[in-house]
Amino acid sequence: MLIVDHVSKYYGNFIALENVHLQFDNGIYGLLAPNGAGKTTLMKMLVTLIFPTKGEIRYNGENIIHLGSKYRELLGYLPQQFGYYKHYTPAKYLLYLSALKGISKHEAKEKIPELLKLVGLEDVMHKKMRKFSGGMIQRVGIAQALLNDPKILILDEPTAGLDPTERARFRKLLTQLANNRIIILSTHIVSDVESIANEIIMIKDKTILYKKPIRELCQLLSGRIYETAADFQDAEIFRKRFATISEKQENGQMIFRFVSDEQPNENWKSVEPTLEDVFLHVYGEGALA
């Protein structure tokens, strides 16, 4: 069990996170917040790249800093900026990282092709990474994080650069891995975590706003989400009069959604809240409502 115990992180005078308290058991946690909220900061503390200004992080009751290599041994980490060596092949780079992770060469040589296949890079595993696309590099990063079969898997915006098929495959991969480890992934894209996360963590105003299963999050807005269709020509009027949280096009019409405590008129239809509604409500223009 991993506990973030009343942790604050300051960069000089700048407060990045204040009094963050979290507890992780096995399962998938989606760290969902817009850019600049402090997701990377939290993750860097979880992997001991940076240290809390206040509070501490404990794994099974011990401070992770004191655990040192015994903690890092359990760690898989995909940083937001995954660095690599252009003149290395994925297979060679993973072999190098295996050595750093204390995995025997023999074991690594068996594991590496499996992992690269899992992320769909088996055809290019012996090609230099110089010409790889962003998505391919990202998948090398995902494979790398899994090398040591980590008990704690920390993925900072893992879907960045992945196309829709790759995203789907990635989500499938995570659910397969989830049963006996802690997986924390950060994203600002709702669909990345919508179907797979056991719990969603939302950071707002430097601290944790919610840590709940998706169903419970949606219940927060239950009965308060309304939807209506309008013609294009009326769209501007709508936007001015109501604090819409989202709008989309459907069959030549605009569909508007917004939050309200009561039904404004009978044209508005009450609908089930989605995670996206919650996200937009919390971080969107109507965040104060």
């Binding site: 992997v47 001991t48 790249l49 040192g68 290599s69 890092r72 041994e73 760690l75 980490y77 940083p79 900026q81 995954f82 660095g83 690599y84 060596y85 990282l97 750093l100 992770k101 204390g102 790398q144 040591n148």
Partner: peptide
């Protein structure tokens, strides 16, 4: 090396870590 190639995130969070 790791700082100039931006690979230190992975290298220094591995088991060997900063003892590298």
């Amino acid at each position: 090396y790791e700082f100039e190639h931006r690979t230190f995130f992975v290298a220094f969070t591995s088991k060997r870590g900063r003892n590298l």
